[in-house]
Simulated assay, not measured.
Amino acid sequence: MSSSCDPRHAPAGDVGAALMVIDSRLKGIHDGRTETDSEQRELINQFTASLGPKGADDLLNGACTLIFMFMKWLREAHEAQGKDVIEYVVPSLVATMRMMPRSVRPEAIPTMAGLLVAAGTGLSPSLWRKQYGYWTPEEMTPLEATALLLAEHINRLTSDPDFATRMVTEALSRATDD
């Protein structure tokens, strides 16, 4: 039986733009910037302001697609070792989010954990969230942090600081070729 949260029914969104934002943040972290510098923040604000409502929805859906892709990769990697992705990934990411109170308010953590569990069980994060209403402005930064933390988790597991970005870029290239 097909779920109303089946990824086949979910809009992919602008995965390229979402990946650009996440990759930019990852590079900033690896360059030693733990805080977003004001110039980068201004550029991201200008970029998101230029999107308009449709573009913002596409960026949100793109971020959810990234979360789905990252969790799918993590699920397959953990299953290959006889482990459960929910047991090994979600608690670690939730604990990290709890240490980020300026970026991820405590009331957003259950939603982000739910997104991770939905994606980890093969459901679309955007369709899962949609059943509870539209995204709130307070959830935007936690959503970005969730995608960023997943990408960084994958990069650490593979000992390759660009693995997550490259994985998505290659998947997008294959999709374009098909």
Rank of each mutant, 00 (worst) to 15 (best):
S50C: 12
G52N: 00
G55D: 02
A56K: 14
D58Y: 04
D58H: 03
L59M: 11
L59K: 09
L60N: 08
N61S: 14
N61H: 15
N61I: 06
N61L: 09
G62L: 02
G62S: 05
C64T: 05
C64D: 14
T65P: 01
I67M: 15
F70N: 00
M71Y: 01
K72G: 11
K72S: 14
L74M: 03
E76M: 10
E76L: 14
A77T: 06
H78V: 01
E79D: 13
A80Q: 14
G82H: 05
G82C: 05
K83I: 03
K83W: 07
K83Y: 12
V85Y: 01
I86F: 11
E87R: 15
V89M: 04
V90I: 15
V90L: 10
S92V: 07
S92T: 11
V94I: 05
A95W: 00
A95K: 04
T96S: 04
T96M: 04
M97T: 00
M97I: 02
R98D: 06
R98N: 11
P101S: 03
R102T: 12
R102G: 14
R102M: 12
S103G: 06
S103Q: 15
V104M: 10
R105K: 13
P106E: 15
E107A: 10
I109K: 03
P110L: 08
T111N: 08
T111Q: 11
G114I: 02
G114E: 03
G114N: 01
L115D: 05
V117A: 14
T121P: 02
L123Y: 11
L123G: 05
P125K: 12
S126I: 07
S126K: 09
L127N: 12
